[in-house]
């Protein structure tokens, strides 16, 4: 593949990011809710807070953040600051900036989401491939099948069940939170273990909930490939079934799965929003949920853009890698 091809993809990537940014810019504006007023509403609801003239305060903050300008001008302003990699401030948690909110939350989410998504991808695909493999033992098929059934139970409920039985009743793992009450983050072995212990249950809830999907699609893929001539040919050639499984079967079936992986990262955000809340983890899902709740659009933009860029980059990369996986596809056609 030539540089020109790569350049074209990068250009496309930028277009995707621009378009996604534009769409996300306008969607929260369809709602009439103002994040600044929402901030006061929260205070008023919980604390008997009643400032003299709420509308005046809201108006002055609207002016401060440029929300009183026409929408197109806000759009231009937003796009130009975006080009300078400035995502702005949280309107609801002012004076926090969006970047700070993301940076603060990201480690927790990366730890949990990326690890669980990768684990579930690996486990699911291996189980799925094995389940489609004629020589696979029966018990393996049973496991795969039960994961498929488990998929129907919402991860939230799995989370609650895990908490109830493993953490609360059996007292084996912490109930919630990202580290023990009263301890303060530090670079130490004990603290790392503490954090890890708190991540196990949410990770299990996410993995149990998603493995089934991979099993299902990988198995379907595997079955189709078994009918292909090259597998037949390899068998007749006398290659060992292990070699066939690994080199002919897994590799070919993996192509669409990898596309699916990039897409799954997008879907996992929704589960994460919910699971992070159930387990009280201060991750990206929690920040996004809070922002959606109060329509804090700059934070919504920031996080959605961040996710968009990550997924779009992944998808373009996967596309560039297609020819490596399947030489019959040429990029420059």
């Amino acid at each position: 593949m030539s540089l020109w091809v790569i350049g074209r993809r990068i250009l496309f990537l930028l277009m995707v990011i621009w378009a996604a940014a534009t769409i996300t810019f306008f969607i929260p504006r369809l709602s009439s809710r103002n994040p600044i007023r929402e901030r006061f509403a929260t205070l008023a609801r919980t604390g008997g807070f009643s400032p003299g003239d709420l509308e005046t305060i809201v108006a002055s903050y609207n002016q401060k953040f440029g929300l009183d300008k026409p929408l197109w001008q806000q759009y231009v302003d937003y796009m130009s600051s975006l080009a300078r990699f400035d995502l702005g401030v949280s309107l609801n948690l002012f004076p926090k900036t969006v970047v700070e909110l993301i940076v603060e939350a990201l480690p927790w989410s990366i730890g949990l989401l990326i690890v669980t998504t990768i684990l579930s991808f690996i486990i699911g695909n291996i189980l799925g491939a094995l389940a489609a493999w004629p020589q696979a033992p029966n018990w393996l098929r049973t496991i795969s099948t039960s994961f498929v059934l488990l998929q129907g139970v919402p991860p939230v409920l799995l989370g609650v069940l895990l908490i109830f039985f493993i953490a609360f009743r059996a007292n084996l793992l912490p109930i919630s939170g990202s580290y023990s009450i009263g301890s303060v983050p530090e670079w130490s072995f004990a603290f790392a273990i503490d954090v890890l212990r708190h991540q196990i249950l949410p990770a299990l809830a996410l993995i149990f909930g998603t493995v089934g999907g991979w099993v299902l699609s990988m198995r379907g893929m595997g079955i189709t490939i078994q009918g292909e001539d090259y597998v037949l040919f390899a068998e007749h050639k006398g290659l060992s079934s292990r070699t066939i499984f690994r080199d002919y079967y897994l590799r070919n079936a993996l192509l669409p799965q990898v596309t699916g992986f990039a897409l799954a990262l997008g879907n996992v955000v929704t589960s994460a929003i919910i699971v992070e809340q159930i387990f009280g983890l201060p991750g990206l899902g929690n920040v996004l949920a809070q922002a959606i709740r109060v329509n804090d659009f700059l934070v919504i933009y920031g996080i959605v853009l961040f996710i968009t860029i990550a997924i779009a980059t992944l998808m373009v990369l996967v596309e560039l890698l297609y020819p490596l996986l399947d030489p019959r596809i040429r990029l420059d056609q």
């Binding site: 993301i102 480690p107 670079w187 690994r246 080199d247 897994l250 590799r251 993996l254 980059t313 890698l321």
Partner: peptide, 29 residues
């Protein structure tokens, strides 16, 4: 098979990249 390994390495590398620069737990400084 080799290509498959390269691919996996790429995917993992990308994940790490997306985590990079941001993956500093905030409280340590």
């Amino acid at each position: 098979m080799k290509k498959f390994k390269i691919l996996s390495a790429f995917v993992i590398l990308l994940l790490l990249l997306s985590a990079c620069g941001t993956d500093t737990p905030p409280a340590e400084d």
